[in-house]
Amino acid sequence: MSRSERSPLLLAGLLATAGVAHFVSPRQFDALVPRSLPGSPRTWTQASGVAELALAAGLALPRTRRTAALAAAAFFVGVFPANVKMAVDWRHRPTPQKAAALGRLPLQVPLVLWARGVARNAEGRS
């Protein structure tokens, strides 16, 4: 299996793991939901978990890979405000936790680029 064939499956695995985590440990995700969003934080946590699982499934299937990869890129952009909220909320925590929260911010860029690269590779194979 070539690197370009592994890449979408690795991204799918990352999203699937994150999606499952939203249901296994929802409280940690509830705290990241911006207060400005309507409804219950748990609803947003569950919805984002479902979205991550759906994106993972879409990435795993060659027929839906391109669309799922583009949706994943948009998803990574869309959850950025939650990462900003985490960085702000954790600014007074111990240094390792603060560093983890701040480290999530620039991590969104390579995730978006990875998803776009998967979409680009999928275009050539359709």
Rank of each mutant, 00 (worst) to 15 (best):
Ala68Thr: 05
Arg35Ile: 01
Pro110Gln: 08
Val112Glu: 01
Leu59Trp: 07
Pro110Leu: 08
Thr43Ser: 06
Gly19Cys: 02
Ala82Leu: 00
Ser4Tyr: 07
Val79Arg: 04
Pro94Met: 06
Val33Asn: 04
Pro106Met: 13
Gly13His: 10
Arg6Ile: 14
Trp44Asp: 06
Gly39Ser: 09
Ser36Ile: 13
Ser4Thr: 15
Ala87Gln: 08
Ala47His: 01
Ala56Glu: 08
Leu61Ser: 04
Arg125Ile: 06
Asp30Gln: 11
Arg6Phe: 14
Arg91Asp: 13
Ala18Val: 00
Thr45Tyr: 13
Trp114Leu: 12
Val50Asp: 04
Phe76Arg: 00
Gln28Met: 07
Ala18Met: 02
Leu102Phe: 06
Pro81Glu: 09
Ser48Met: 15
Arg93Leu: 07
Arg66Met: 05
Pro38Asp: 05
Arg63Ala: 14
Leu9Trp: 06
Trp114Ser: 12
Thr64Ile: 10
Val50Thr: 03
Ala57Leu: 14
Ala68Tyr: 01
Leu10His: 04
Leu111Ala: 06
Pro26Gln: 05
Phe75Glu: 01
Ala100Ser: 10
Leu105Ala: 13
Pro34Trp: 05
Phe29Thr: 01
Val88Asp: 08
Leu107Gln: 13
Leu59Ser: 06
Leu11Phe: 12
Leu102Ala: 15
Met86Thr: 00
Ala21Phe: 01
Ala119Ser: 07
Arg91Cys: 05
Leu61Ala: 04
Val33Gln: 01
Arg63Glu: 15
Pro38His: 08
Gly124Ile: 04
His22Ser: 09
Ser126Trp: 03
Pro96Ser: 12
Trp90Leu: 09
Phe80Asp: 00
Gly117Ala: 09
Pro8Thr: 11
Pro34Gly: 08
Val50Arg: 06
Leu55Pro: 06
Pro62Gly: 02
Ser126Ile: 03
Pro41Asp: 14
Glu123Gly: 10
Val20Thr: 01
Ala57Tyr: 06
Ala51Ser: 10
Ala82Gly: 10
His22Val: 09
Glu52Ala: 08
Lys98Gly: 02
Ser7Gln: 15
Trp44Ile: 04
Ser25Leu: 14
Leu111Val: 07
Ala69Cys: 13
Gln97Met: 15
Leu55Gln: 06
Gln97Phe: 12
Trp90Arg: 13
Lys85Val: 01
Glu123Gln: 14
Arg91Trp: 02
Pro62Lys: 11
Thr67Pro: 00
Leu32Gln: 11
Met1Val: 11
Ala51Met: 12
Thr45Gln: 13
Ala115Gly: 05
His92Arg: 12
His22Gln: 12
Lys85Met: 00
Asn121Asp: 15
Ser4Cys: 04
Thr17Leu: 15
Ser36Asp: 00
Gly103Cys: 08
Ser48Ala: 14
Ala47Ile: 02
Ala12Gly: 08
Ala99Met: 13
Leu9His: 13
Ala18Gln: 04
Asp89Cys: 07
Pro110Thr: 08
Arg93Lys: 14
Val118Gln: 07
Pro110Asp: 12
Ala82Cys: 01
Ala74His: 00
Lys85Ser: 03
Phe23Asp: 07
